[in-house]
């Protein structure tokens, strides 16, 4: 289990890095945390001809959380930094709740949020979190920069909206809406494993307690992370009581299209989507502040 040979670049600047990527396109892979890429390379499931190592570059590890709660997370921000950032803990509680479920401490010391999202593993937790939060993702290339809504970013299995010359340079999380609450829940065989099912829920309530908006997003629920619009709609415009929870759960079971694995059949994954929807929405409602 040793990687096949590759060319290894340590670019002198972000511009240099983007130029290299523009020149080599899909033949080149970005190396950020490497915690998904290196295992695949050791198993020779991935054989990139060229690696462009972002780690030596400065300026990509910016992590800022504004007073209102808007978070900007650069390409080299590692999970470790997210876990320990006071602003994230205070304002981006859904992300803070999800990150400790990603692998183990050693992996989180190296792995990056942007790398995870660009890898677009359908079993990962974080794409679902991005959908629930309504994140925007910044793509950069020598052609310039553009912002992509999370909803449009995850296209298919290991496939994103990034062009071959683009880098996922940053993620922006909007400020949590007022009178909103969130919850992240997953069921995994062991802590740190990919979830058999994961759900990220954000609920907004009117002062009278009725639901004004709901975003429910699921990991390991299909070729890419997905929302459950019908389940969300079933919650909006009413008080979230037991009947609403059950209705949303039933709709969520239908919304997911889980692939099944050696650990869970699609039927069990659907069942878990329903259970977790009920629990996560109830928790999110209880957390509304």
């Amino acid at each position: 289990m040793k990687p096949a040979p590759f060319d290894y670049w340590t670019p002198e600047s972000l511009e240099h890095a983007l130029a290299l990527k523009a020149e080599h396109g899909d033949a080149a892979r970005w190396l950020a945390g490497g915690q998904s890429l290196l295992p695949a390379m050791n198993l020779r499931l991935a054989r990139p001809g060229i690696l462009i190592d972002l780690n030596p570059l400065s300026g990509l590890d910016g992590l800022t959380v504004g007073d209102a709660g808007v978070a900007r997370i650069g390409a080299l921000v590692r999970y470790r930094a997210l876990e320990r950032d006071a602003g994230i803990a205070r304002h981006q509680t859904l992300l803070a709740e999800a990150v400790p479920h990603v692998a183990h401490p050693q992996i989180r010391n190296r792995g990056t949020l942007c790398g995870n999202l660009a890898h677009a593993d359908p079993a990962s937790e974080l794409p679902a979190v991005m959908l629930a939060l309504g994140a925007r993702l910044q793509a950069r290339s020598i052609r310039g920069e553009r912002w992509i809504d999370a909803q449009d970013f995850f296209v298919d299995l290991f496939t994103t909206a990034l062009a071959p010359d683009e880098l996922l340079a940053a993620v922006e999380l909007p400020a949590p809406p007022p009178r909103s609450g969130g919850a992240f829940l997953e069921v995994a065989r062991r802590r740190g494993d990919y979830a058999m099912m994961a759900v990220a829920a954000v609920i907004e309530l009117a002062p009278d307690g009725s639901c004004t908006a709901a975003r429910l997003a699921y990991g390991n629920a299909g070729p890419s992370a997905r929302r459950a619009p019908a389940a969300e709609q079933a919650l909006v415009g009413r008080r979230i009581d037991d009947a609403a929870l059950r209705e949303a759960a039933a709709l969520a079971e239908r919304a997911v299209d889980p692939p099944g694995s050696v650990h869970a059949s699609p039927a069990f994954q659907r069942h878990l989507a329903g259970v977790l929807t009920r629990r996560a929405v109830a928790t999110a409602v209880a957390r509304v502040s």
Partner: peptide
Amino acid sequence: EHGACGACTVLLDGLPVRSCLT
């Protein structure tokens, strides 16, 4: 050699990392 067992953990600038994934 795929980051699952942790036997190869070393400190890189003081932080534990998998040396098989570096």
